[in-house]
């Protein structure tokens, strides 16, 4: 555990540095409070709608795919470190695991979830 002492010191220094910089910024800068500064500026008009604009579903689908393959790598790392000791049976299990995930990937690709503006999704 003692080898993490440097990490603790690093975190402490980073925290103290961040707090000091924010505090110095609030203390040293000149602030003139004004109510007009807090309003939304939209070319002289009042704001029409919400500032939050809805995202596309494609972002969510890409995040799903990233999550799934992230977990796949998390399952592969123990194989590379110790699962190789279990021989061909372990390798067969690994290949079966990968094959099941490839089925899902092929489905997603064929469905057109990865294309942004292709005619298949239209």
């Amino acid at each position: 555990m003692i080898e993490y002492l440097g990490v603790i010191v690093y975190f402490m220094v980073a925290t103290v540095l961040g707090v000091v910089m924010f505090w110095a910024a609030t203390q040293c800068s000149s602030q003139r409070l004004d109510l007009e500064k807090l309003t939304a500026y939209e070319c002289g008009y009042d704001a029409f709608g919400e500032a939050r604009s809805p995202f596309d579903v494609g972002f969510y689908l890409v995040a799903i795919l990233f999550l799934v393959f992230d977990l796949e790598v998390a399952f592969l790392i123990p194989w590379a470190l110790g699962g190789v000791l279990s021989g061909w049976a372990g390798l067969a299990a690994l290949l079966l695991f990968l094959a099941v995930l490839v089925v899902g990937f092929v489905y997603e690709w064929g469905k057109g979830a990865l294309d942004w503006n292709s005619p298949e999704t239209l």
Partner: peptide, 20 residues
């Protein structure tokens, strides 16, 4: 724990899909 992490990921993905 690794398995629970997988289950959590799948559950979140499907739950958010149902939300949408």
């Amino acid at each position: 724990a690794l398995w629970v992490m997988t289950a959590a990921a799948a559950e979140t993905a499907l739950g958010l899909a149902l939300c949408v």
